[in-house]
Computed example of a mutant assay.
Amino acid sequence: MNVLNAEDITAGYTDIDILKGVSIHVEKGEIVAIVGPNGGGKTTLMKVLFGLLNPREGEVYYKDENITELDPTERVKKGIGYVPQEENVFSSLTIMENLEMGGYLMEDIEKEISEIFEMFSSLKGREDQKVKELSGGEKQMVALGRALVSDPEILLLDEPGAGLAPDLKEMVYGKIIDINELGTSILMIEQNAKKALRTSDRGYVLQTGENKYKGRGEDLLQNQDVLDFYLGG
Rank of each mutant, 00 (worst) to 15 (best):
L4W: 01
D17Y: 06
E190Y: 09
K175M: 11
D167M: 15
D178W: 14
E210G: 07
P160S: 05
S200Q: 12
L123H: 06
E127K: 13
R75D: 02
N2E: 13
I113N: 02
K77I: 08
E138R: 12
F50W: 03
K77D: 04
G217F: 07
E59L: 08
A33N: 09
Q129V: 13
Q224K: 14
G183M: 02
L157I: 11
N192G: 08
F90Q: 01
N223M: 11
R216I: 08
E74K: 06
P37D: 07
V89G: 01
G40I: 12
H25N: 15
G161M: 13
E74R: 09
G136R: 08
T44W: 03
S150C: 06
N5F: 07
D64F: 00
T68M: 04
A162R: 07
Q140F: 03
L231K: 13
I31K: 05
E190I: 13
D64W: 05
L70T: 04
M106E: 13
M188T: 06
N54L: 09
G51P: 06
M141R: 09
I95A: 01
D8H: 12
V131N: 05
G233N: 15
S185F: 08
I116A: 00
I109P: 00
Q224N: 08
L182D: 12
G183T: 05
N180Q: 12
M1C: 04
Q224F: 03
Y213T: 08
V26Q: 00
P37H: 14
D128C: 06
M46Y: 00
Q222N: 15
F120C: 05
M106L: 14
L99P: 02
L227S: 12
A33G: 15
A165S: 14
T68Q: 02
G203R: 08
F229C: 05
V48P: 00
G79I: 03
L105T: 08
Y82A: 06
E87W: 02
D108C: 13
M1Y: 04
Y204L: 07
M188R: 09
E74S: 06
D71N: 11
N38H: 10
N88E: 10
I95R: 00
I179L: 09
M188G: 02
L4S: 05
M106R: 14
L157N: 02
T10D: 05
G41D: 07
E218K: 15
K214L: 13
A11L: 03
G183A: 00
K132S: 15
